[in-house]
Design a protein around this nucleic acid. Structure first.
Lengths: 239, 239
DNA sequence: GCCATTTTTGACGTTCCGTCAAAAATACGA
DNA sequence: TCGTATTTTTGACGGAACGTCAAAAATGGC
C-alpha cells in the first residue's frame, strides 16, 4: 500500500523534478546546453518518460518560466502591502522586481530565450496562456498602485493616458534595462557600474515626468529600497 | 581576364550574398528555420563554401545584426542633423529609432536571438566587438544630444547623473518597449493599441522627469515625428 | 597544355530531437 | 498467491541539422 502511494507520488512530483533538474542544467550550460538526454541522464530516467510530461524542449523552458513567474507574483503581492504613499509603494514594487531578478537570475535568461518567436511558437497555446495570465497578474498589481496614486491625489494622469500605459513604461525600463545590463560589454563601455540603481532612478524619473507626487526630488525613494529589502524580503539573502 | 574578375568578384561578394539569403530565410522561418543546408540550397552552392566565410550559424546571425546596425547608424546620423532645440533633435532621434524598427523588422528579432547568452557565446570575440562598436556609435550620437541639451541650457542634469545614463534610460524604454510589443499577447490584454506612439510618449515623459525644457506639455514633440518622417526619411516607405 | 594552388563539394561522423514498439512494473480480481 | 489487464518505462531508431575534411573541380601561371 505504501508502495502504491510512493509510486504515485513519484509520478505526480515528476514534472517539478524535471523542471528542477532542467533549471540546474540551464543555469550551468544555457539554452544550447540544455537537452533532453542530459535531463534524463541526470534524473536517472529514460528520455521517453520526460515526454510524458512535456510536449517538447520548448515547453520545458516555458514551464520553467511560468514557475518562476509565480515566485514573482508572490513577491509583488508582498511588496504591494508596503505602508506609505502610493508612490512609495510603487518604489517598493520596484524593489521587489529588482530582488526577483537578483534572486532568480535564470528567469531573465529564460525570458530572453522565449522572446525568440520561433522558439515560443513551438509551445502549446495553453501553456502560453498560462504565462500571459501570470504576467497579467503582475501587471494588474502594478496598475492597481497607479490607480491608488490617482485616487489619493498624488497623480493626475493626462487625459490621453491610462494606468496600464504607465505600467507599460515602467515595465519597459525594467525589462529593457535588465536586458541591456546582462549584455555587459556595451554597458561597461558606457561607464555604467551600478545598473540596478540606474533602473530604479529611471523608473523614478519617469514617474516624475508624470508629476506623481511626492517627486523623487522631494522624497528619497532609494531609502525605501533598503527598508523593503530588510523588512519585507528579509528571507532573501542579502546582496 | 574578364572571367578572372568575375570569379573574384563573386567570391568577394559572397558573404553579403549569404547574408542576404540568410536574412530572407530568417524573416520567413525564424531562428529555428534558418539552417546552413537551406542557405546553401537557396544559393546553389555547397554548404562547405558557407563555412569558408562564417565560422558557424551563430556568426551568420551576428553578422546580419551588425549589417543592420550599420543602417541604424546611418539613420541616426541623418536624424541628428534635424534643426531645432536639443530636445526636438532628440525627438527626431526617437523617430529614427522607430522608423528603423519598422523598416528593418528582422533586426529586432536578431537582437532577441543574440541576447540569449548561450548563442552569442558561440561567436568570436572579434565579431562581438564589431557589434559593440556599432552600438557605441549609436549611443554616442544620442549622448551628444544630451550634452547639447546641457550646453544650450535646456537641461540641467542632477549632480549624480551623467549623459550616458540618460541614454541608458531612453535605450531601455525603446528596447524594452519594442520587445514587449513584439512578443506579447500581454500587450493586447493590456488594451494598448499603438505601441510605437506609447514608446515615444514614455521617452518624452522620462525627459520631462529630468525637466529638460521645453517639456512635452509645452511643445508637441509628436508633431516632429511627422516632420522627420516626411522630410528626413522621405526615402522610406510611408506607414 | 601542364602542373601547382585555390576553391568547392557533398558524404560523413556527431549530436540531439521526438517516437514508438517492446519490456517492465503495477493494479486487481479470483 | 497467482494470472491477467492496464499503465508506465525504456532505449533503439529515424530524421534533421551541425560542422569537417579528403577528394574533386576550377583557376592561375608558365
Amino acid at each position: 500500500m505504501s508502495t502504491v502511494t510512493k509510486k504515485r507520488r513519484e509520478i505526480i512530483d515528476r514534472p517539478q523534478q524535471i523542471l528542477r533538474v532542467a533549471r540546474e542544467i540551464f543555469r550551468e550550460r544555457g539554452y544550447l546546453g540544455l537537452n533532453m538526454d542530459r535531463i534524463a541522464e541526470q534524473m536517472g530516467i529514460a528520455k521517453g518518460t520526460i515526454y510524458q510530461h512535456f510536449k517538447n524542449k520548448e515547453e520545458v523552458i516555458l514551464s520553467m518560466a511560468v514557475e518562476t513567474l509565480e515566485k514573482r507574483i508572490a513577491m509583488f503581492e508582498r511588496a504591494v502591502l508596503f505602508q506609505g504613499s502610493a508612490r512609495a509603494r510603487m518604489a517598493a514594487m520596484g524593489c521587489a522586481a529588482e530582488l526577483f531578478v537578483i534572486n532568480f537570475p535564470d528567469h531573465f535568461e529564460l525570458e530572453k530565450v522565449l522572446s525568440c518567436s520561433s522558439i515560443i511558437e513551438k509551445t502549446s497555446e495553453k501553456l502560453q496562456a498560462a504565462k500571459t495570465v501570470a504576467e497579467m497578474k503582475c501587471i494588474s498589481l502594478v496598475a492597481g498602485l497607479v490607480r491608488d496614486g490617482i485616487a489619493s491625489g498624488g497623480l493626475l494622469l493626462p487625459n490621453d493616458f491610462k494606468p496600464d500605459q504607465i505600467v507599460f513604461g515602467l515595465w519597459s525600463i525594467s525589462y529593457g534595462g535588465y536586458s541591456i545590463m546582462e549584455s555587459q560589454e556595451t554597458l561597461k563601455q558606457m561607464g555604467i557600474e551600478n545598473g540596478f540603481r540606474l533602473v530604479r532612478d529611471m523608473n523614478n524619473k519617469l514617474l516624475d515626468g508624470f508629476n506623481w507626487k511626492p517627486l523623487s526630488s522631494e522624497f528619497d525613494y532609494n531609502a525605501i529600497f533598503d527598508e523593503v529589502r530588510t523588512r519585507i524580503f528579509s528571507d532573501f539573502p542579502k546582496p
